[in-house]
């Protein structure tokens, strides 16, 4: 979805979001309160500059607006695949963004992520996935890597992966699979303007994704393995 259209649906009471080089920032009115909005658009490749710009926006909110909630809008094709980014240490820039969001959450800012178009890999784990809870629109896609590249690296034929991607929750890119695995909290497909304040009200800092993945049946082992390690016992049967 185009971000202007999204913003109009999310913020009927108005917003000040602007776009610069695929980077979105501004604020908006949500249920009578000001919410900071930070994100990317046009399937942005996340290079060192845009990672740093997002981190700066998060730090600006933490410094200047105590407890102001933050909405992270996700639309990215993943990390930029350039030698220069690697040479400069892009993993450090992306980790920095993730840590700044973590710091905001720990400093009593509620943080919500929303995948409104496309989410991929490193660009997602350091943005929407660092939020208290991450939501997605029904038409969005979330994936680790395109199937062609995945086929090259795994040596699994692409047609086999294409077949698996139709209904296998591990390979299919639809948000419903991430929902079943606990990776996203819920899919928003109604009145976005009422779902956002509800999400903000429910947000908390505990990472419940493995638990949700077990309860929803999409990731049956993660939570049981965590529990077995923590309690020093065997992994309990499904």
């Amino acid at each position: 979805m185009e971000w202007h259209k999204l913003a109009a649906q999310l913020f009927p009471a108005g917003h000040t979001i602007t776009e610069q080089d695929h980077f979105l920032s501004g604020s908006a009115q949500v249920a009578g309160k000001t919410v900071a909005v930070i994100g990317t658009t046009n399937h942005a490749p996340i290079g060192v500059e845009i990672a740093l710009a997002q981190a700066q926006a998060v730090l600006h909110v933490v410094h200047n607006y105590p407890q102001r909630p933050i909405l992270i809008l996700v639309d990215t094709q993943g990390q930029r695949l350039r030698h220069r980014d690697e040479m400069l240490g892009i993993n450090s820039y992306m980790a920095h963004l993730g840590k700044c969001i973590e710091l905001a959450r720990r400093s009593r800012h509620k943080v919500i992520g929303l995948v409104y178009d496309q989410a991929l890999s490193g660009g997602f784990i350091t943005s929407g996935m660092m939020a208290d809870a991450c939501y997605a629109l029904p038409q969005s896609t979330i994936r680790v890597m395109g199937l062609a590249a995945m086929a090259r690296i795994t040596k699994v034929p692409e047609d086999r992966l294409t077949e698996l991607a139709k209904d296998n929750p591990v390979f299919a890119p639809g948000p419903d699979n991430y929902l079943r695995m606990g990776g996203i909290e819920a899919i928003w497909d109604g009145d976005l303007a009422t779902q956002l304040p509800e999400a903000l009200a429910e947000a908390n800092t505990v990472d419940r994704r493995a638990e949700l993945g077990l309860a929803r049946g999409g990731r049956k082992l993660a939570q049981r393995v965590v529990e077995a390690v923590v309690s020093g016992t065997h992994v309990r049967a499904a």
């Binding site: 784990i125 979330i142 680790v144 591990v170 991430y178 990472d207 994704r209 990731r219 993660a222």
Partner: peptide, 10 residues
């Protein structure tokens, strides 16, 4: 794929 990405985030 998807399970691995969530795992890394966790």
């Amino acid at each position: 794929a998807n399970a691995g990405l969530i795992a890394v985030s966790e």
